Amino acid sequence: MAIIIRKLSRPGCRPCAAISHYLAEIAPQIAEEGATVTEHDVMVERGLLEKYEITGVPVLVFERSGVEVARLTGLVSPEEILDTLIYAKEVR
């Protein structure tokens, strides 16, 4: 099952920029796990705020078959992102 990691952020958000940097850093491991990262600007895609019940960014939503299986909010480490990816692949 492929995992989609939705990165929800907005321009000018420093923690969002840091998360982007971390995702780039661990891109090989993300690809190795068969996951894809999609980036969403919540200022452009405002409907996502309501859909995912977001009150602040950055947020990483891990989806499998279109269903949210995990979420990380705020500034998290590359290790936490990878750990959550592994969890998202295994959780029932």
Rank of each mutant, 00 (worst) to 15 (best):
A27Y: 03
G12A: 11
E80C: 08
E80R: 13
E90A: 13
P78H: 11
L8H: 00
L23F: 09
R10A: 12
M1A: 05
L23C: 09
I30C: 09
V76G: 07
L72A: 08
I81D: 02
V59H: 01
T73F: 07
A70G: 09
E33P: 00
R71F: 03
G56R: 14
G56D: 12
I54L: 11
R71T: 03
A18C: 07
V44W: 02
R6G: 04
L85G: 03
A2F: 08
E39A: 10
E33C: 02
T36M: 05
V76E: 07
I81F: 06
Q29V: 08
S77R: 08
A31W: 08
Y52N: 05
L82P: 08
A35Y: 00
I26Y: 00
A18G: 02
Q29D: 08
V67L: 06
K51Y: 13
R14H: 13
V44G: 07
V44T: 14
E68D: 14
R71P: 01
A2I: 10
G74R: 05
S9N: 11
K89Y: 06
G47T: 10
I30R: 05
I30K: 02
V67Q: 10
R64M: 02
H40M: 06
V44A: 13
A18T: 15
G47L: 07
E79C: 03
E80S: 09
Y87L: 13
C13E: 04
E68G: 12
A17Q: 13
Q29Y: 00
I81A: 03
V57K: 01
H40Q: 07
I4N: 04
R6I: 01
T73V: 15
S65Q: 14
K7D: 10
F62D: 01
L23V: 14
L72K: 09
M1E: 05
M43T: 11
V67T: 03
L82I: 11
F62M: 08
R14M: 15
A17T: 15
L75H: 03
L8I: 09
A35N: 04
E25G: 02
L48F: 07
V44S: 15
I26E: 04
V69L: 02
A2V: 13
